[in-house]
Amino acid sequence: MTTLDPAKLERNHHQADHLEASAHGDHPDHRIFGIIVFLVAEGMIFLGLFMAYLAFRTVAPTWPPEGTPKLELLLPGINTVILIGSSFVIHNADTAIKKNDVRGLRLWFGITAAMGAVFLVGQLYEYFHLEFGLTTNIFASTFYVLTGFHGLHVCFGLILILAVLWRSLKPNHYSSNNHFGVEAAEVYWHFVDVVWIILFLLLYII
């Protein structure tokens, strides 16, 4: 860096000539990288909320506060299995489209969407049968905010999956070398899944 190097100058001029030939029309795809970077930010919202939950829990003399009804484990347990399973199911869609198998893509995305919908219905069923409301106590409030915020993300993931399904009906929309939408929906779905695992452990298990 300390002196000007004529050899470098020469090489760079050469490189410029080379680049000139292929300057336009070369747009590498940064979108998946962008989605992953964005999910870091999403993860930080959840991390902030988890930390708040742990702080409330640490400060409280008893947790959950006295008088909180015990949480039923069966339904959320089944829901967890369904959501984790859907992550494996959606991966099959990715494998399928990489082999140019659009029917396979539709099949696996369809199953994933159904599993996501079952999860959401299960979540709503649990909400309606819980014996505490949003403002009952600090545990109830954090419970609803955390699961609700996660539920919103599942909703959004479901919309993404359905959008990909809709688009896959158009012939040749997705192919083995052009399937950003499929990958994006899959990455997002895995993210929602991982968040749920942490959330389930925090709220129900420990």
């Binding site: 930010a41 919202i45 708040a52 409030s141 905010v145």
Partner: peptide, 16 residues
């Protein structure tokens, strides 16, 4: 990227 979302979390709780 790392810090702003946590503020969003705080704002959500504060608005509740």
């Amino acid at each position: 990227l790392i810090a702003t979302p946590v503020l969003a979390g705080a704002m959500i709780l504060l608005s509740f």
